[in-house]
Write a protein that binds this DNA or RNA. Sequence first.
DNA 1: GGCCTTCTGTGCGCTGCCGTACATAAGGCG
DNA 2: CGCCTTATGTACGGCAGCGCACAGAAGGCC
Lengths: 245, 245
Amino acid sequence: MVKPRSASRLQPRANRLLASLPDADYQALLPHLEPMAMPLGLAVYESGGLQGFVVFPTDSIVSLLYVLETGASTEIAVTGREGLVGISLFMGGETTPSRAVVQSAGHGYRVRAAVLKRQFEARGELQHLLLRFTQALITQMTQTAVCNRHHAVEQQLCRWLLLMLDRLSSSELRMTQELIANMLGVRREGVTEAAGKLQAQGLIEYRRGRIVVLDRPGLEARVCECYAVVKREYDRLLAAVTPVR
Amino acid sequence: MVKPRSASRLQPRANRLLASLPDADYQALLPHLEPMAMPLGLAVYESGGLQGFVVFPTDSIVSLLYVLETGASTEIAVTGREGLVGISLFMGGETTPSRAVVQSAGHGYRVRAAVLKRQFEARGELQHLLLRFTQALITQMTQTAVCNRHHAVEQQLCRWLLLMLDRLSSSELRMTQELIANMLGVRREGVTEAAGKLQAQGLIEYRRGRIVVLDRPGLEARVCECYAVVKREYDRLLAAVTPVR
DNA sequence: GGCCTTCTGTGCGCTGCCGTACATAAGGCG
DNA sequence: CGCCTTATGTACGGCAGCGCACAGAAGGCC
């Protein structure tokens, strides 16, 4: 188990959800925030498993994905510093049939289930915030469904890269094409081909498990509408946080 | 505007969500339940439009769908007597980027937004119930995303027919293949072909806008895993309603 | 530095679905 | 009953993505 150097660990409010909380709510939660390392590949939740914690990522990214009986998988949504992982805990279902896996290593803070539920029930801004986040997440999921049906791999790759970029501070992603393929639910070769095109156009540059985005506006010009729809909803639902009660 | 014969109008508790409410919560809501006709094609909500009401279908079925810029559309989820339409109202977002359209005509009850929000905030069983329903809906949406990516049209048609059957009292659906194609986000010809196969195998029978399911177990044998996953979650999240706080 | 694992590039043939175009049939309506 | 709208059947070429198979390249490790 890798213990992060505390120098690299960000403050809880690096998570935008925690940052949006009014002070009173934040202070109530603060003593229960436990820092945790989020190494690549860590399964934050297993499908159907009981969830003891909710996790607020700071500089890590978590994929929600569904694994079919055949072993094939598809990403349903991603969550980073703008949200939290484990909505089924306060939604009342306790579990979900999907997995949550760390896609980009980093850190986060976790809160025991019972604590979060108590705070959620205690009529504060926390509940409103978490529900609005959940609605944003729903938008991301529905748009993923639409995108899967109607758009080409290249466009989906653009969308996915942009989703990652929005949740990172650098423009470098550390992931293999194999991994991306599993997320998009396509063949690895499909990713190789799409990524090759993007590189040929000077939008990205990559080598062995490392992708650098060179031209973000270029990606945005090539992505399908799905990205903008989701981004707009996230901005709308999570930006305008009323800071008082 | 078609006014339903009151003889054909079901009681509010034909809606399973309303039926699951403890008496106290139900009585509080009852004076605000307005019966409404749900004719085929009625847009309960438009994408991005303000939602003045939440709707509890009794014998109608509503599709949540997303329409792309190109005009192509895909169904995200369906809701019938087991749920309600308009979650964004209590989730805090007020609107969503998707449309809600009546897919199978019938009736329902609507509640003004302000009233439902007040009852939701009152933190009775209503809130828990609506949140659990929302989680079930999320499962349906994610599974739709997975199914769109990995499964063949024929299997998706099976899934869709079963979803409809679960929400109807008869085994006859009144819908054209064109309409089904729009829901599944595929070509009409694709539906013709898939439906033809199912008919050849004696599972269904159809003619001009009318589909009769003859062999439900047969459909269940042919459907992909997605149907069962969703059904299990609905049963789990909505069946075990604790009637007392 | 050399080996060996892991990642990436490329080339097949195959299949499922698309786009288009048109033929036929069913049923409502006058 | 006959017409006319609307639904369904069928056919054909095209292509995106799949499954498979292998070659080359990069980088970690001893």
